[in-house]
Amino acid sequence: MPHTVRGVIARRKQAPTEVVDVVIPDPGPHDVVVSVQACGVCHTDLAYREGGINDEYPFLLGHEAAGTVESIGSAVTHVAPGDFVVLNWRAVCGRCRACRRGRPWYCFDTFNASVPMTLADGTPLTPALGIGAFADKTLVHEGQCTKVNPDTDPAVAGLLGCGVMAGLGAAMNTGEVGRGDSVAVIGCGGVGDAAIAGARLAGATTIIAIDRDPAKLAWAGELGATHTIDGSQTDDVVSAVRELTGGHGADVVIDAVGRPETYRDAFYARDLAGTVVLVGVPTPELTLQLPLVDFFSRGGALKSSWYGDCLPERDFPMLIDLYEQGRLPLDKFVTERIALADVEQAFAAMADGRVLRSVVQW
């Protein structure tokens, strides 16, 4: 039977969030009801509230989540009740042209739950990134559930559901950082610092963190940065990166901000034939203008990283194992643990740069 839980919604553009009753319907054949144990507060949730994603209000916010499978649809084979899972927003179909070509991380037809969650009056909710996990329970497709070590702290495990995975994957998957490489990361929030941790894990020897906030640069140092550049103290980030890389530029530069000025710095701060990875999400009105000859003459690769080009079934268990071995400090991303009613205050803390991640914990 359908049941009612608490959930955090954005009812209209730029309005404060509300904690309201949310109705979880019976799962469809391939759907799963998950009892949420922890969910990180991601900048994407704020973008939904502010109208930066689309206008399909009301939104059920939250998507960086871990929890326990409570019930399953009649055709579910991927998980069972009681499984501890991390939720993901790119459940690959296995049939689209990207999947058939062996590139499932680009899947063009990802799955979500087949029936909507609603408000008490029957109004359908749009779940953030197809998940909607600022709620006691949520409804997702079975492919959005990835089983991981059940002994893992849910607040840590859930971070792989979005921002931390995006940053780790930007370095390890998209950027293909290797042993001995030099890496520069522009923007040291949660995604950028995860890229720093990923570069360190991949064996980079020079890891340069770039930000305008000294507190964020300090966090970057804890997560693996070997050098820092305070952008508020220099108007020439490119020269500063070159000075730290023998005058050449970095092998891989990761833009975790997503603005024309940061992308331009990333483009020119890389070595000849180096790689630029854009993982910061730009807003639709932003444009970039660069001399075309510079694209040609510098060579290399310009890449965008979608969700860190991850495969949840491959990457989530591996990264949790590395965390449990003490080789990946995922717990350092958890700045504070909060209640469901504190999401609005967490957005303010995020905007002020006071946290890497606030995590709602049940």
Rank of each mutant, 00 (worst) to 15 (best):
G326N: 02
V156L: 06
V5T: 11
A133V: 14
T77Y: 02
F347P: 13
M172P: 00
I131W: 07
F108Q: 15
V183M: 11
T146F: 08
V8N: 03
G300P: 05
F296R: 07
G190H: 05
I208L: 03
G28H: 09
V281L: 12
Q361S: 14
P124W: 12
S182V: 07
R100F: 06
H141T: 00
H3V: 01
G258F: 10
V32S: 11
R327I: 00
P124I: 04
L302E: 02
V191F: 10
Q289T: 15
D230S: 10
N173R: 06
P81V: 01
Q144M: 13
V191L: 07
G231H: 08
A269L: 12
V156E: 11
E56W: 03
S114I: 03
R212N: 14
V359N: 05
V238W: 07
P154D: 06
R354V: 01
A349K: 07
A113M: 02
Q345E: 15
G224K: 06
F59K: 05
F296S: 11
A225Q: 04
V79F: 12
P25H: 05
M350F: 12
S297D: 07
G280M: 05
R179F: 11
T68L: 09
A38M: 01
G7F: 05
S74D: 13
I229W: 05
R49H: 08
G40S: 04
G143W: 06
F316P: 13
T123N: 11
T283W: 05
V32A: 11
I210L: 10
Y307P: 04
D236N: 15
L60H: 04
T234R: 08
V183E: 06
D31R: 06
D45K: 03
V343W: 09
D342S: 14
D45C: 12
V115K: 15
S114K: 09
D294F: 07
W105A: 10
E336K: 08
T335I: 03
Q325C: 07
G73C: 01
A135R: 02
P16L: 07
S239G: 14
E70A: 10
T126R: 14
C310V: 08
I131T: 09
A199T: 09
V185E: 03
A197D: 04
R97L: 08
Y57L: 14
V5S: 09
K147P: 10
E261S: 04
V34N: 04
T287I: 03
R200K: 15
R242A: 05
C96V: 10
A66G: 08
A266P: 08
V241A: 06
Q325M: 14
D236C: 04
R314C: 05
R90M: 14
V86C: 03
A91C: 06
V281G: 08
Y268M: 07
A266T: 12
R270I: 10
V293Q: 14
G94C: 00
R242E: 10
G7N: 02
D213N: 15
L119I: 04
A135L: 09
T68N: 13
G198L: 00
A225D: 04
V257N: 01
W89S: 07
D136A: 02
C107Y: 06
I72R: 08
A349P: 00
N149A: 13
A113P: 07
I24L: 03
A256S: 10
A38L: 11
R12M: 10
V19D: 04
V237L: 13
M350K: 10
A91N: 09
G258L: 14
D121P: 06
V34C: 11
Y106T: 10
V334F: 00
D251W: 10
